Computed example of a mutant assay.
Amino acid sequence: MARIAAEAAGGQNVVAFLDMTAVSEIDAWTREHSDDGYNILVGSHGPSETHTRPNAQQVVSPKLLTFASYAAHPNIRNQELNSTAAGRYQLLSRYYEPYKRMLGLSDFSPVSQDLIAIQQIRERHALPLIKSGQIVAAIKACSSIWASFPGNDYGQHQNDLALLVAAYKSSGGAVSIA
């Protein structure tokens, strides 16, 4: 569950959107075996998760990659995936410092990660959509941020809108237009 209070986030729908994003970006096993995803590195995954590789599919054993300190973004590159994504919302290290300065953050703590994700949502003009319950439009608006959202061309696994809407509702989000 997002650590930011609903009032500070802009309402329960925003918190539900953050929780839905975590469900989309990080599988349940990894969230359960970490600090709800806040301390994970890209490449973490639970057991029996199927990864598609060129011309092959394989079932892999669980892999939990975490970082120990919330003092700053860990900036650890996963060589296999060529990515520095970390935390609950899989923020790339190159974006951390600009957001840290912009938002006046002192660390990469769970609340700081929530605030960065909310700023990214704000930049896609999706906060009004979320607050009014227009969840599908908000997901589409944010698909350029999170590769797991449908509607982008990152070439990674994209989750189905129905799964995302269900996760949003189960986190207490209200839908006015699905």
Rank of each mutant, 00 (worst) to 15 (best):
S83Q: 09
F108E: 00
K100R: 14
I118T: 06
A71I: 13
T30F: 00
S144C: 13
L163T: 15
A162I: 11
T21Q: 00
C142I: 02
I76H: 01
N75P: 06
F149R: 05
A2L: 04
F149L: 10
N152W: 05
P62Y: 05
S24L: 03
Y99H: 14
N152L: 10
S48M: 14
F108N: 00
E25L: 08
L115K: 12
P62M: 09
G172K: 10
E7C: 13
G37L: 01
A72F: 09
G104I: 02
L91S: 04
V111P: 01
D153I: 09
H125M: 14
Y96F: 12
Y99K: 10
V14G: 00
I121G: 00
Q79C: 14
Q120K: 13
A56P: 04
D114W: 01
D153E: 15
L91A: 08
A8K: 07
Q119L: 08
I177N: 15
R101K: 15
R94T: 11
A16Y: 04
G104R: 09
K100P: 02
F149D: 02
Q58S: 13
A56W: 11
A2V: 06
N82H: 13
A162M: 12
A28I: 10
Q79I: 15
A6M: 08
S93D: 12
S112R: 02
E97P: 10
N159C: 13
V60P: 11
E49V: 14
L115D: 05
M20C: 05
Y96V: 02
T84Y: 05
G133L: 06
H51A: 11
A28M: 12
N75F: 03
M1Y: 12
G37T: 05
F67D: 06
M1I: 13
A72I: 06
I135A: 08
I130G: 03
A147I: 07
A162K: 11
Q90V: 06
Q90G: 06
A28V: 11
P98N: 11
